[in-house]
């Protein structure tokens, strides 16, 4: 089968790669681009471990065909930290012990970033609904939800203090 040439923007960099026509975006990101932060938990859209922002929308990379992303802009977990500074979400996950094995963490971080990008001050209920597509089999959800709420609060403080803690994709 002829391989397809893809050009796209990932985490701010222009990226080119070759993929098979029936390859998923998840496999292409891991195997062709070398971004292994994106995880496969189920491969069927149920667990959210493969979440990426595709043109600003949170999406399961396992449910996208790699040839579809030609010309798109993506953010993966590798794009959250900036200039060596962890994103407030990452900092709060660390401080709040919101991970154990960590397989689900990149997906939670990306889905939480999508939420905070459109709703910087969510309620606990809004966080729970926004993360309903992400499963964690070890940590339990309370610490994760609390970490997201803490990050939102930190980012609000930073914004109100005059600096911007996060940029949008």
């Amino acid at each position: 089968m002829t391989r397809t040439h893809i050009t796209c923007t990932i985490n701010g960099d222009e990226v080119e790669f070759l993929c098979d026509q029936d390859e998923t975006l998840l496999d292409a990101l891991r195997d062709e681009v070398g971004l292994t932060g994106v995880k496969e938990g189920c491969g069927t859209g149920d667990c959210g471990a493969c979440s990426v922002l595709l043109d600003g929308r949170v999406t399961c990379a396992c449910l996208v065909f790699a040839p579809e992303v030609d010309g798109t802009t993506m953010v993966t977990v590798e794009g959250l930290a900036e200039a060596g500074q962890l994103h407030p979400l990452q900092q709060c996950f660390l401080e709040g012990a919101a991970l154990q094995c960590g397989v689900c963490t990149p997906g939670f971080l990306v889905a939480a970033k999508a939420l905070l990008d459109r709703n910087p001050d969510p309620t606990e209920t809004e966080v729970r609904y926004a993360l309903a597509g992400n499963l964690c089999r070890c940590t339990g959800y309370d610490k994760i939800i609390r970490a997201v709420l803490d990050a939102a609060a930190d980012m609000q403080t930073a914004t109100n203090g005059g600096s911007t803690a996060a940029t949008t994709a």
């Binding site: 959210g48 949170v58 999406t59 449910l63 889905a111 939420l115 597509g133």
Partner: peptide, 9 residues
Amino acid sequence: IGSDQIQSR
């Protein structure tokens, strides 16, 4: 329908 991830698509 599904999650936010599903509804994006």
